[in-house]
Amino acid sequence: MSRLNDVNIKTALEIIARYPRPKSALIPLLHLAQEQNGYVTNEAMVHLGELVGVTSAEVYGTATFYEMFRFEPVGKYLVNICGTMSCALMGAGDLMHHAEQKLGVKAGGTTADGMFTLAHAECQAACTEAPTLQVNYRFRYKVTNGDFDTLIDDLKSGKLADEIPAHGVVARIRQRIPADRGVGAVAPGLATENPAWMDGKAAL
């Protein structure tokens, strides 16, 4: 059962309603599917196609373009070590080498216990804090080999469970638009003239 569950269907419909066209919700919905199952399953993609009104092939087409979506199970913790210029200049290569030894897998591999997937990543927008890594998209800055070992041990012992959710969950806070406050999606065709406040007078 890897279609969206009832709670997520409700969230999905809420997200879809914000967009002028349902297909726009596809990437947020793929995240939702990945959040539920840890990776994006074929059944989920079929389901999303039904929800937004496109074929599952189109969902697959979109999903495979983006790096964050995984189509096979990955470790509970995805460790992305940045290797782009600033990090490389500051020793990201050494860090990756150490990480491979510590985890006993090569970059791209998953540990036998299914806890960790190690991966190379591109620039993570934390260049002044190089070398950096992300565990399930949570940052660690200026990472030394010792820091890395501590991080892995803490993750194993469950010490960081509050801070770092399992793979699939990115943001833990969702936008909620209260029904009485939202304007609603403004689709092409819905508006045929300038918005009310463009009448040349002050709005307040």
Binding site: G83, A88, L89, G91, A92, G93, M96, H97, A107, H120
Partner: peptide, 8 residues
């Protein structure tokens, strides 16, 4: 791969 870092 880790190549680039090793020689940095």
């Amino acid at each position: 791969d880790g190549r680039q870092g090793g020689i940095m």
